[in-house]
């Protein structure tokens, strides 16, 4: 059992890198990732658990980081959109969403990528309905979703 009195020193593991930081306990994971750790790929849209722009993976499963307390994420593996590419190579999903035209303004894209990445890790051959459910917590106001769905299906075809 660890007891922390805020502001307190915590270590967050983000994309395989331990970040020792000092934060208040009421800080949400999204603000800490963006403002303390400096990884701004994670977006804050509604800041109310509705839009999914803040989606990150916690031990491999998508969560809304705008509504998760950073101090509670100690000892967990956090993955952000910056953790998807290896060196200069985009992940297959990232390549496909670009190729399919699934990115317009781009604000929802990091969250979409995190939800879809988790979905494909858990279920490499999702049906279109399963992709819809997997992405149901992510809002996009530009694309109409069709090309995003296509890119996830295309990726599942490639990885199988």
């Amino acid at each position: 059992m660890s007891n922390t009195t805020g502001p307190s020193a915590v270590t967050l593991n983000v994309n395989g890198v331990p970040y020792p930081i000092v934060i208040n306990t009421d800080r949400t994971l999204s603000t800490v990732i963006r403002n303390e750790i400096g990884l701004t790929g994670t977006k804050e849209g509604c800041d109310d658990c509705e839009c999914g722009a803040c989606m990150v993976l916690l031990d491999g499963r998508p969560i809304n980081s705008c509504s998760y307390l950073a101090a509670q994420a100690q000892g967990r593996e956090i993955t952000t959109v910056e953790g998807l590419a290896s060196q200069d190579d985009l992940s297959p999903l990232q390549r496909n969403i670009l190729a399919a035209g699934g990115v317009q303004c781009g604000f929802c894209t990091p969250g979409m990528l995190m939800s879809a990445t988790a979905l494909l890790n858990e279920n490499p051959s999702p049906t279109k309905e399963e992709v819809r459910i997997g992405l149901s917590g992510n809002l996009c106001r530009c694309t109409g979703y069709a090309r995003i769905l296509d890119s996830v299906i295309q990726t599942s075809v490639e990885i199988n």
Partner: peptide, 26 residues
Amino acid sequence: MTMTIANSLDDVLSGLANGARPIAGG
């Protein structure tokens, strides 16, 4: 404000006895 991460039920029940409130997914 403080955050205690419990690893056992006794940790939680002791915390509650001392005035803490539980958080699961939040």
